[in-house]
């Protein structure tokens, strides 16, 4: 009987159908299961544990369209041994996938409200699925705004999507970079400065934030300055994860496990320890 319990640490084998560079240190892979069903369902904000045969595993957020379960997309930044090994994989090769794990962005809470999405750097990857989702049911929401900060113009992710979204009249996109050469016609400055440049109803809005922790700290403060209540702010946290299912203990963030209760948290639930150093 006990031997029938599924092994949550066993990855399923997925094949790489496409792989392309996004920026100098990021790339996207499109995956398809090699066994069982050919669909992979997830909610925007969730992540998978991706495994390179014989090398290791890393938590990577899902960055594709939830309405297209036949293509599982991950955008990966090359930062460590495992992500380097992923970068070396070619089309037709395989990856292990466990997931989807974790909580998701509160799209259902956002119905009838303004939605302000604020992304920093690779933080756009776990937010892209929610943008797809909001666009596909655009009539359910009031304003939809995406504020995106990157390091330089060359570090901007998903330029093809951003250009398409910018052409729409029902979604406002503002992009800023930390540093640029003179040929850059867009904004220069940190992403928090964009918040003052848009108008929204602070009492009827949902803010969704993902980026480096410092960026999120300042973004939360700026939203609160604008009168946004903490119950309407959501952010996606990052911690070390070895298992993704609450067994390994590494992703503890105060009383919560980022893999189980997160990665998407309501700010009110983590406010008391969000700013605690080295927590």
């Amino acid at each position: 009987m006990i031997n029938n319990i599924p092994e949550p640490m066993t990855p399923n084998v997925f094949r790489i159908n496409k792989k392309y560079k996004e920026t100098h240190d990021t790339f996207t892979i499109e995956l398809e299961p090699t066994q069982g069903t050919d669909e992979f369902f997830f909610s925007p904000g969730q992540f998978n544990m991706l495994y390179v045969f014989g090398v290791g595993e890393a938590p990577i957020s899902i960055s594709g369209d939830p309405k297209n379960p036949k293509t599982l997309k991950h955008t990966i930044r090359v930062v460590g041994t495992v992500t380097k090994a992923m970068y070396r994989l070619k089309r037709g090769e395989v990856l292990g996938v466990r997931g989807p794990f974790g909580s998701h962005w509160p799209s259902e809470n956002a119905v009838g409200k303004d939605v302000i999405i604020i992304a920093g750097g690779i933080g756009l990857a776990p937010l892209r699925p929610v943008v797809y989702q909001l666009i596909s049911q655009r009539e359910k929401y009031r304003k939809v705004v995406l504020l995106y900060g990157a390091r330089t113009p060359e570090d901007i992710l998903y330029t093809y999507d951003l250009e398409q979204w910018q052409r729409r009249f029902d979604i406002e996109i503002k992009i800023t970079v930390d540093a640029a050469a003179e040929n850059w016609r867009g904004d220069v400055g940190v992403v928090t400065t964009l918040i003052r440049k848009i108008s929204f109803d602070p009492s009827h809005m949902i803010g969704m934030i993902c980026g480096p922790e410092i960026m999120m700290r300042f973004t939360v403060a700026e939203l609160q300055n604008c009168g946004v209540g903490k119950e309407n702010i959501f952010l996606s946290m990052e911690r070390n994860m070895r298992c993704g299912i609450g067994f390994c203990g590494h992703c503890q963030f105060g009383p919560v496990f980022v893999c189980k209760e997160g990665p998407v948290f309501n700010y009110e639930c983590i406010e008391n320890f969000f700013g605690t150093r080295e927590i």
Binding site: V79, R151, D155, V190, T192, T193, G211, I214, M215, F218
Partner: peptide, 19 residues
């Protein structure tokens, strides 16, 4: 003050690989 704060954040290079 707000420009200084923004500049300090830029200085941190938060999107850099080291954070």
């Amino acid at each position: 003050t707000s420009r200084l704060e923004a500049t300090r954040l830029q200085l941190l290079d938060v999107y850099g690989a080291h954070v």
